[in-house]
């Protein structure tokens, strides 16, 4: 369980991000979720896309360092406290969140969160036990 995320190494330079999105556009790749982590000298772009394998391949062919990682997509009610319930469950289960971000597109009244865990399988158990909705794909959203 879990979905594939593509992560890309980015140098800190003007136009670096646009170089990646150009490649995605030229290859008709649809972005479902995105986050950019930035340090002083470099950044990591993380993407959920409709076809992660093809995305990684076209980026590699274009000269980028790209990698695929398993992450967890969770759907929560889009209302105050919607996120809190999920995080409470993770805290109770003592599961570490490496990082998390929101998906761009969701069903009405729902929000989709992408979680990166160190211990993915245990995190999934904790989430399911708490009755959190774990998605197997973002393509249907």
């Amino acid at each position: 369980m879990g979905i594939s995320q593509v992560s890309i190494f980015l140098e800190n330079r003007a136009g670096g991000l646009a170089d990646v999105t150009d490649v995605l556009a030229q290859n008709d790749i649809d972005i479902r979720a995105l986050t950019l982590a930035d340090m002083a000298d470099f950044g990591i772009l993380r993407l959920i896309v409709d076809d992660p394998d093809r995305t990684r391949n076209v980026l590699k062919a274009a000269g980028f360092t790209a990698d695929k990682t398993r992450v967890v997509a969770v759907e929560v009610p889009d209302k105050p406290g919607g996120l809190a319930a999920t995080l409470r469950a993770l805290r109770q289960g003592k599961v570490n969140v490496e990082y998390m971000y929101f998906a761009a597109r969701t069903r009405a009244g729902r929000a989709v969160l992408i979680f990166r865990f160190d211990e993915l399988d245990r995190a999934l158990d904790v989430l399911r036990e708490a009755g959190v909705v774990v998605l197997s794909t973002l393509n249907a959203v």
Binding site: M39, I44, D67, E98, Y99, R116
Partner: peptide
Amino acid sequence: FSDTMRALE
């Protein structure tokens, strides 16, 4: 390369 800052750092 890693998708986490911690590993890359």
